[in-house]
Design a protein around this nucleic acid. Structure first.
Length: 306
DNA sequence: TAGCAGGAAAATC
DNA sequence: GATTTTCCTGCT
């Protein structure tokens, strides 16, 4: 039962980071956050400039925590780079300390395949459901947990069985993605080694190589690249972000898309629009566009609640 | 390229 | 309770 602390020497907010919709296997009880990571449990809380941690395995140690929360990133430098306008400056102040998380690549891909047409509580429920059914059970501090299922476990699961996890039409997509990862068709290391544009092209090519339906389009690919492959330029565009961009950054949108979004806030974004919009936001925000996306997401969610 | 289906649960009325 | 919406992709 390792217990340890990590001293923070750069800005970090555990609350904002775990509450920003990047991760689906974290929950808060009392003042502690509990996360299922790296085949174990991490119990963690922030005391100003110290992270107090307990974990179920020796693998989850200070260096894991530093890597997982990307504590080595120079956040002030990143914020200086993206805060090119008043809106982003305000968001960066309001959610100061929010960082991108470095997730397990397979888990990230699988989670975002499930995320289509769902809200965050729903996504968490689907993820929990496949973990309950296919994950490895283990106990920690008197509580039972399940690890995230391996790609092999999901690839081998009978489709009818997987469908019982409440995944709906996502079940066959998830199974095929799992099979592609399991048989080596998807090489995450090769993807991560390339710069953003090439990495995205390779990921989509690997996934589409067998000419099967996979449920991974540009949005899911951007999520995987940003949250698990260190491609900080990746800027996933979902309906929330599209609406926020239409309101605060109208100049970045192709005029026809802007007009459609203004007429109908839930207008669909075509592949061509996604590609053009992705290019213009990356040109505007630069090499850390993905961080800008995360701050923008928090700002728009916050505004929605108010 | 535009329009649509998909499938279940959360949010909203 | 019924209806609308939901961090989208693939097909026609």
């Amino acid at each position: 039962m390792p217990a340890f602390t990590v001293r923070l020497d750069s800005p970090f907010s555990l609350e904002h980071t775990l509450g920003s919709g990047q991760v689906f296997r974290w929950s808060r009880r009392d003042e502690w956050w509990y996360g299922l990571v790296a085949d174990g449990v991490l119990k963690i809380k922030q005391e100003v400039d110290v992270l107090r941690c307990e974990s179920s395995s020796d693998q989850i140690d200070p260096s894991f925590v530093t890597r997982y929360f990307r504590l080595g990133d120079d956040l002030d430098h990143i914020i200086a780079a993206i805060a090119k306008d008043d809106g982003m400056t305000r968001a960066a102040e309001r959610f100061y300390g929010l960082r991108l998380v470095r997730q397990d690549r397979w888990e990230c891909l699988a989670s975002f395949v499930l995320a289509t047409n769902a809200n965050i509580p729903r996504i968490k429920k689907m993820v929990a459901s496949i973990c309950d059914r296919y994950g490895r059970p283990f106990d920690y501090a008197g509580t039972s947990y399940r690890s995230f299922p391996t790609s092999r476990a999901l690839a081998e699961a009978p489709g009818s069985d997987l469908a019982r996890c409440g995944l709906g039409y996502r079940a066959p997509f998830l199974k095929k993605v799992a099979a592609s990862v399991e048989d080596g068709a998807v090489d995450f290391d090769a993807v991560a080694a390339l710069p953003y544009e090439g990495a995205r092209a390779l990921l989509l090519q690997e996934l589409f190589g067998e000419k099967v339906l996979l449920g991974v389009g540009p949005k899911v690919a951007d999520c995987v690249l940003l949250y698990s492959c260190d491609k900080d330029e990746a800027f996933p565009i979902d309906v929330w972000i599209a609406r926020a961009l239409a309101r605060s950054y109208p100049k970045l949108l192709p005029p026809p898309l802007l007009a459609r979004l203004r007429r109908d806030g839930k207008a669909k974004i075509s592949a061509g629009d996604y590609s053009r919009l992705s290019g213009s936001v990356r040109r505007w925000f630069g090499e850390y566009a993905g961080y800008a996306q995360q701050y923008l997401y928090m700002a728009v969610r916050d505004q929605e609640r108010a």
